[in-house]
Each structure stands twice: as C-alpha cells, then as structure tokens.
Design a protein around this nucleic acid. Structure first.
Lengths: 146, 146
DNA sequence: TTAGATAGTTCTAATTAGGAACTTAATAGT
DNA sequence: ACTATTAAGTTCCTAATTAGAACTATCTAA
C-alpha cells in the first residue's frame, strides 16, 4: 500500500494523517498558528525547500485547512489563513507540545508555555472526559466499532 | 534544512515530530494501541513494506516508545509493547481521531467510538483547562516563551 | 519431507525531498 | 535610467527515501 492511499481507509486516524501526517505539514501549521502567514516567512523560519513548501501549502488549501488570501493587488501577493477546519487542528498541536515537553525536553525545560487567557493561568493542556470531567489516559478508554 | 534535523530545534512540536512525525509511524502506533504487537500482524494490517516497518519499529525502540520483547525462545520471536513514554502518546492519537471524525467522516459517520470506562459513556475527548475546567480552543490560548 | 509461521533482510525501480538558480512584477534608492 | 529588494512561486538536477517483490533463517506440525 502506498502512503497516498491511507486516506481511503475507514479510520479517522488514517484520514487525519492523510492531510497532516507527512513531514513538514504540522510544522508549517505550527508556524501559521503562531501568526506566520506568508510564503517567504514560512520558508525562512522552517528552512524547508520552497518547492516543498509550495506543494504542502497547495495541499492544505485543497483540503480546506488553509485559505489563500490576496492581501495585495499589483503585484498580486497572497498569504495563508486557517479556516475553521484548520483552527480545529489546534488540539493535535497542543498534544504534540505536551508530549514533547514531557519526554523530549532538555535541561532548559519546556521551550514555550501555554496560558489559558480565560483564567489567566499557565497550564498543561490535558484531555478530559466531557461527561464526568475525569482525566483521560489510555487504560481508561476503550475503542469500539461505532 | 533536512527533516532529520528538526529534532534539534528548541520546539516541542518539532521534537515530538522527530519521533512520530513521519509517514506510517502514527499508524503503526494506532495498531499497537489497539493490541497489535507482532511484526507480521502489523505488516498485514497496515500494508506497508516489511522493510519500512522494520525500520520504523527500530526507530521507535531507539526512542524508547516501544519495547521489543522476546515472547518465545527457540526460535527467537519478538513483539512490541508500549513503554510509559509510548502510552503517553495516546492523547495525540485521540486528537487525530477527533479531528478525523469531525472533518473527514463520510456519510457512514465516525468509524469508531471511544468509551470512557470509568464513567461508561461514549465521549468525544476534548482538551480542557486543568485549572478552571473550561474547554480549550485556539483563541483562548496564548503561547509564550517559557 | 513438505508446508506454514515468524521476524526479519536484500535488491531494484519508482517516487519524493533537497539545494540552488530562475521568473515575474512592482517599488525604492542612486 | 539602472540597480537592488521584496514576494511568491517555478524549474531543474541530484540525493535520499519508499514500494514491491523475493529471499533467509529457525522451528513446528502434518
């Protein structure tokens, strides 16, 4: 099976990964979430080839994750904005941050911290059960066919 | 910049992706979470090449995400178990499931459902603030240098 | 003695990624 | 008028990775 066929599987992990699961894509989205919107800035920041960046941005646009917006006429200049579908990827990035903070940090500690603006506190975002409020860890959960 | 250098960046997203951010790795881990532990079964289930599977498993073992366990002597046979570090990847998979359910589902609806065994209910795992209990969405959060 | 199970390795061809230079269009400076 | 700069890509060539298939090794059961 080739990688580009995994989106056809009846599996939400596979389908999500078919959009964001290749090299660079989530790093590009990290930058977009941090406010970087332009091709040049993304390329400079991430250091990936312009070729690849163009290809990934096109794919994200096709999937409706980013919107290519003309921010200046003459010469035509475009930048990239998150759609609703794109903004909704945030929990994926946050869970990557959390895992990296916990398991990949060096002795300088976590590079960034997350502030919950509603309550003003520095937090470590965690999954919770929306029904009972309990913390969610792997052994608490069972996955079954819907 | 080459992909294999991103783990050296001072960024928890980049560091996490240097471990699980390539094609197939998170799909392999999905299967391991669902109880598939053996090389043959993973290969059959996922349909990736044996070559790549071996390489990915080796890398996950090196990173301490999986443990290669001899489950039979003579002939020596091994399977793969999640370490604590590996189990802790669960929120990443769950957030991928959530996004796929919401944005990539077909008319058959989400393929699987998650049951919180502690309270017995079918849930959609969501990030919540451990301090105030509020739901976490991108606009509520600010990320800053630690 | 032949087939099957298990966990890989090896080989070649096809695809993808990396690096650098080029394009187009407008503006600002000299 | 000429040159440099900004911006968003494209094009071309080479290097690395992936896909697909076959092969290896070891033991068990028929």
């Amino acid at each position: 099976m080739r990688w580009d066929e995994i989106g056809e599987l009846r599996c939400s992990v596979a389908r999500s990964l078919s959009v964001v699961g290749d090299r660079w894509t989530l790093l590009i989205l990290r930058d977009v979430f941090l406010g970087v919107r332009r091709f040049e800035d993304l390329q400079r920041n991430l250091g990936l080839t312009r070729h690849l960046l163009a290809e990934r941005l096109r794919k994200l646009e096709e999937h409706g994750v980013l919107l290519r917006v003309r921010y200046r006429e003459r010469p035509a200049r475009y930048d990239y904005r998150l759609t609703r579908k794109g903004v909704d990827l945030y929990p994926i990035l946050l869970s990557l941050v959390r895992w990296g903070d916990r398991w990949m940090a060096d002795d300088l500690g976590p590079p960034m911290q997350v502030v919950h603006q509603t309550c003003g506190r520095v937090i470590a975002p965690a999954l919770q059960c929306p029904e009972c409020g309990g913390n969610l860890t792997a052994p608490d959960l069972r996955v079954e066919l819907a």
